[in-house]
Design a protein around this nucleic acid. Structure first.
Lengths: 148, 148
DNA sequence: CTACGATCTGGAGTGAGGTCTAGATCAAGT
DNA sequence: ACTTGATCTAGACCTCACTCCAGATCGTAG
């Protein structure tokens, strides 16, 4: 990893040289395995270019797309839906309404998730406070209460 | 389900009659399969009582515990950790510090999750806005931009 | 030239978290 | 007694999202 990183960095830090799979892995947080897997699954918009030797050479826009994928996955979008989105983008212009619909539906699910998590947090916080108070009062008061 | 629900409700709405597995499933949102699975995995604090015929009879405190489990699971606590927590509670008083630590660590993870989700949401919202604006301007301007 | 690390392919394996099946039993209504 | 629906057990099976392996190839450094 030092080798390739070094090579890329010494060459040009801001130029849009294509990146190796390892470099993309480092930039996206995905593993090289996951990158190949995503490609096989059709989650990428375009086919990834290859070097003469057959190695993948990712363009800047591939990385951008992958960074979006990461965010969508991180927020719980299933791969199947991500694939659907990739297909729409791949088809080109004309289906923006459907893309919007897909993303907006996901946004609403994310909102719901956040709301749910906030409620979980309040339950957990309450429980944490119960224990903290319990410990503050000294352990002597420890009568076994299954709800506490 | 009508049978058992009806039976329970006509008898006493607020009494602490033990509940059948189906009733507990309805109250917790877990499937009866999941309830048996959780039991097998040692995620419950006490062993569930059985009727003479061998059916599970859940007490009110079993349900309370399960409702907490649901919240912890919903917020991403792995079953292994939930099991650890159940073990601590099962052991009785004396380990409150450890329970507190476990829950507090989880609370911090939930906070991190919420933060991450909020960032995802802002990325998605931005993308949604891009498409919305695109559509508002009319579809004519549709030049294929892989980043949009 | 040799070594070594990164990458290639196809396919098998993993872990989490359930879900489902079969075949039997229980309990309530008619 | 009979039917119907809920429950029982043990264990097989499933989905998801990767992850890993074997065995070959590429490409740079020494």
């Amino acid at each position: 990893m030092i080798t390739s990183e070094t090579r890329a960095e010494t060459r040009s830090e801001t130029r849009e040289e294509p990146l190796s799979i390892g470099e993309v892995a480092a930039r996206t947080g995905l593993s090289v395995h996951a990158l190949r897997f995503y490609e096989r699954e059709g989650l990428l918009v375009g086919p990834v270019r290859r070097s003469t030797g057959g190695r993948r050479r990712y363009a800047a826009c591939d990385v951008e797309w992958l960074l979006i994928c990461v965010k969508l996955r991180e927020s719980g979008m299933p791969l199947a839906e991500l694939k659907r989105f990739a297909e729409l983008v791949r088809q080109g212009p004309g289906n923006e309404a459907e893309r919007l619909q897909l993303l907006d539906a996901h946004r609403r699910r994310v909102d719901a998730q956040i709301t749910a998590l906030e409620e979980c947090r309040s339950v957990i916080t309450w429980k944490v406070d119960v224990y903290a108070e319990h410990l503050a009062r000294g352990e002597a008061a420890g009568l076994w209460d299954p709800t506490a």
